[in-house]
Design a protein around this nucleic acid. Structure first.
Lengths: 236, 236
DNA sequence: TCCAAAAGCTGATAATTATCATATTTCTGA
DNA sequence: TCAGAAATATGATAATTATCAGCTTTTGGA
């Protein structure tokens, strides 16, 4: 059952102002608004699936999304997390060919779809958008390469700590300024880290034991940010 | 000691025809040719180093290059390999900030440098170049995400087999149609795979034992391509 | 509200891979 | 050409992490 809701207006969309579309004005913005369609997704719904042909790009109005690949044994590897203002599916659209990942909501979400023709025209007419897309792809690639090195070299304990920091950085904190503003299953966290679910559970319990984090169901609160950084063994 | 050699002409450069600059003509091509400078690098020389600010991009005229990150314990993780016609350093230039990787020649190489102003002007004036850059970044990102999943989920044996296939795909075969056209140390191969050097040595010996490959010093010949694909556990 | 299923947790054990030690071979520069 | 250094090779051992099994808690739907 999909709730009825008002289509957001791109001109006044707060998410857009922090997105790659921040530089759109006038007719371009009007075209974007006319051509896009916003859809409500319940938690756990698939937005696009590995193997499908991209028909456009998705712009997250609000919500939380995981993008993952499925390995040989059926295990997910989460390659990125998205939130309001992020766009999705541009990698495959720009690169050509089918989606190589699957996108799935982690929460109830509103996500706009922009047909590929509309997006292509904007790319052609607006050099700034092209530049921002290149910046975005470059940032994604940088993250992916860092993660490759981590996966190859860092022990699981450090990677679990990193994953917690990544969640904080991506989704921020609740009002208490401690609790990370997302609920993920232990399995999802394991699929970010690239390890077995049991190992993740054990390491979270370890961090809790050490007083670094507090666990309340799926919620994680960071009690000692400095210690967590130290465990994660990152400089920034 | 750097050998003197004639500066290649972009207009007639065979490498360029297969690069992102393949669509340049007339004045754009002339500007590129005038502003670039081609430099000879001996095997083992650093082209750019992690931490430096990018001043332009590098275009490989001929040669073989490894791009790697250095982890906490000083171990390299090779994130890509380049050859003639490939460009280097665009990730950091486009994304902003310092290089996060180091590029080093694996063979004597001739590499052109294109100042960032020249490159930026080309990007602004030539929409096709922008599109090709986005395609390139997208392809890089796709590879990086696949590799993340591999590192997280595949056993080392499969990854070593994959690495051999990757070397073949990147550098091709010698005239015998069996031997891969590059010489890498076991350590470099290990740093592609993301494993210990000893483990790589053992697995190569295993593949040799099984008659899948032939080893002649640093040279690897693929004797049973189908078996290697099977070991690598890849579909394409 | 209650029940079944899913998720979370914990211990025991197994598998994988890294590390260390030590030859042996190959390469490189004087 | 030769000596020293670096790379390769191999065995033994240790560390890390996964897997399996069984139990408890939580959750979501009838």
């Amino acid at each position: 059952m999909i709730r009825k809701f008002e289509q957001p207006n791109c001109a006044s969309c707060g998410s857009r102002k922090h997105s790659v579309f921040c530089e759109l004005h006038g007719q371009e913005l009007a075209d974007l608004n006319d051509d896009k369609g916003c859809v409500f997704y319940k938690k756990g719904q698939i937005i696009f699936n590995s193997g499908q042909m991209p028909q456009g790009i998705y712009c997250v109005h609000e919500g939380k999304i995981k993008v993952y690949q499925v390995g040989d044994e059926g295990k997910e590897q989460i390659v990125r997390l998205a939130k309001g203002g992020d766009i999705l599916g541009y990698r495959s659209l720009l690169g050509g060919g089918k989606y190589s990942s699957t996108a799935e909501t982690l929460d109830d979400s509103k996500i706009c779809f922009i047909p590929k023709n509309t997006f292509s025209k904007l790319l052609e007419s607006n050099g700034t958008l092209s530049m921002l897309m290149m910046k975005l792809l470059s940032a994604d690639l940088k993250m992916a390469e860092l993660k490759m090195t981590d996966l190859a070299q860092k022990p699981v304990r450090e990677r679990v700590a990193e994953a917690i920091l990544y969640l904080k950085q991506t989704y921020g904190l609740d009002d208490d300024n401690e609790t990370i503003a997302i609920s993920l299953s232990r399995e999802d966290i394991a699929n970010i880290v690239g390890t077995a679910t049991e190992t993740t559970i054990r390491l979270l319990a370890e961090f809790k034991q050490e007083g670094i984090i507090r666990l309340d169901g799926k919620k994680i609160a960071i009690l000692k940010p400095a210690d967590l950084l130290k465990v994660a063994n990152v400089t920034d």
